[in-house]
């Protein structure tokens, strides 16, 4: 872009004042600032001993869970919307005919590869029955790749583990199914 371009907005710099020209007052000011931080409060979280503060657990995007309905059955209706929405293609669903009268299909197997997942929350957005949700559980570790592929039982157990501390989002946020 040329400096003559009418879109260039020229700003005049403020001329230096007396203290700025003498420099020493600014030196003292700078040293005071650093010295204040030197003794000030630290923001580091010593992780394994201290837990980082997870702001609102309801909007945190940690490990997934598969929700259960009131009867303890998996809520998922195997519609594949989450698998379709997933940009990392980490959701693998095998659908089969539902044994229950209130829906046609249910997942025979439901796997999420936590290593491929990018924790974007699209599955959660896509789910029409709020079956898959992301929890605020953040230390996700494993000793092998296979272990990091979470199957249906494991995802349901994450729900059992977190259902008390984190109610289902549709209910707690006042949403409807």
């Amino acid at each position: 872009m040329k400096p003559t371009d009418p879109d260039v907005h020229w700003i005049e710099e403020r001329p230096l004042g007396l203290t700025e020209k003498l420099y020493l007052p600014l030196v003292l000011q700078g040293l005071t600032t650093t010295a204040r931080h030197l003794v000030g409060k630290k923001v580091t979280v010593s992780y394994p001993e201290e837990r980082p503060a997870v702001g609102n657990p309801l909007i945190y995007r940690g490990v997934h869970r598969l929700n259960r309905d009131e009867e303890g059955r998996v809520k998922c209706v195997a519609c594949f919307l989450c698998a379709t929405a997933c940009p990392a293609h980490c959701i693998d669903i095998v659908a089969t005919e539902s044994p229950w009268p209130d829906r046609e299909k249910y997942p025979e197997s439901f796997q999420i590869d936590e290593l491929r997942c990018i924790f974007c929350g699209m599955c959660e957005e896509a789910c029409p029955v709020d079956a898959v949700e992301l929890t605020s559980f953040l230390d996700l570790t494993g000793k092998s790749r296979e272990e990091m592929i979470f199957d249906k039982e494991k995802l349901l157990s994450v729900y059992d583990m977190t259902k008390d501390s984190e109610p289902m989002k549709s209910e707690s946020l006042g949403g409807t199914l």
């Binding site: 650093t34 931080h37 030197l38 003794v39 409060k41 630290k42 923001v43 580091t44």
Partner: peptide
């Protein structure tokens, strides 16, 4: 240490 403390780290 000084670097960390000045930057509010430990």
């Amino acid at each position: 240490w000084m670097a960390a403390w000045v930057q509010d780290r430990k």
